[in-house]
Amino acid sequence: MIDTLQIADSIKTAIDTAATAINSPDNFDELTFSLDNIVKGNGILITVIGYVVVFTALLVLYLAIAQVSKILISRTRKKLEASGLAGQMQKENLDISGEVNAAISMALHLYFEEAHDFENTILTIKKVQRPYSPWSSKIYGIRQLQRK
């Protein structure tokens, strides 16, 4: 007969151990709210410097990217002017609305997926080979599957 009392005892001991660990007063003692902790841990200093540096990093990146864009646009403008196509750089040609973008994307999608009105007239019949193997044989199959 299984010693159920012993099992019950071990379960009780395990529950007590876990409960003690969870409710350990030592753990609570470690977390005591005090504003002095912020001063002691240089909280304000690290926060101010850290936040300023994050801002600076992204501000520098913003300025760099904005300048690069300007340089590239003016370079393209000069190229087009040299080739007599300056009209291409009008503002209305640069700012393409979301609707136009969506229409272009849809057209490209349909083109690449070949979902167009005129079907390709070249048809190819692919030969499909299913070489016999006892592993895939229906004769030796456990279940006879219904053929549709």
Binding site: L31, G50, Y51, V54, L61, A66
Partner: peptide
């Protein structure tokens, strides 16, 4: 629209506010 990059910086205030909150609660740095 690269100026929107600054919004990504501004939202990081959450990191530093929580850092201060955790320090106040007694967590180590």
């Amino acid at each position: 629209n690269p100026k929107l990059m600054l919004l990504g910086a501004a939202a990081q205030v959450g990191i530093f506010a929580t850092f201060i909150g955790a320090l106040a609660l007694g967590f180590t740095q």
